[in-house]
Design a protein around this nucleic acid. Structure first.
Lengths: 118, 118
DNA sequence: CCATCTATCTATAATGA
DNA sequence: TTCATTATAGATAGATG
């Protein structure tokens, strides 16, 4: 997301992808830490990256384990459906926003080109 | 992180905290989706926020469940220690960087004030 | 409350060492 | 390859509707 616009697709180039992965993982962990600090939420994350067999955990293994045990012990099913729905809703919203953004950008590019031609 | 500098401490004001939480949660999910798309990593997250009893899951309940089963089935212990260490290392690094940044900013402020006085 | 805007801060792709 | 720098895209606090 900088210098050049990011094309949101799999990064084919191995070294570029690895660099991006490491930077973004760091960024993600920072965001997590911020959310935890600012809003006092409990978070557990497991990331299976392409460069190690072991997953990467946040904030650490023990919290992940206990959080997951807690997660598992919930009654489930109806709640489960709600969560998936909410997640899908959010992702759809994000996707829609990105599409709108790209559209606006494209329009602006066309405008600029047209102006240059006049 | 904008308009005003963010003080990285618990946000006391309830409504501000809630607004911030919602915005940042959305941002975090977007970052996840990007990482998944750009680098093809498997991610599972559970967030216990302050506004619902049920945890918020990403990308969805089923993936979280299966990821955690996979996570649990690992041999553990020695690997566990490494992960915590790596996580702590990363967070320390981030903290150090933030401190450096704040220091530089403070220095700049002092410089500006001194210049104004001359 | 929720959506939109925008000024500003932050994250990060590309580059250089 | 990893570390630091820099220029730009992206995220977001506060304001407004």
């Amino acid at each position: 997301m900088t210098r050049n616009k990011v094309n949101y697709a799999f990064i084919e180039d191995d070294s570029k992808r690895k660099i991006s992965y490491n930077k973004r993982l760091k960024g993600l962990l920072k965001k997590y830490d911020e959310l935890k600090t600012l809003c006092d939420v409990e978070v557990a994350t497991v990331i299976y990256g392409p460069y190690r067999n072991e997953p990467y955990t946040f904030p650490n293994n023990d919290v992940v384990r206990s959080t997951f045990i807690k997660f598992k012990e919930f009654p489930t099913l109806k709640r489960s459906k709600n969560m998936v729905t909410r997640e899908e809703f959010t992702m759809q919203r994000i996707k829609k926003l990105e599409e709108q953004l790209q559209k606006v950008r494209k329009e602006n590019r066309v405008k600029e080109m047209t102006n240059e031609m006049l």
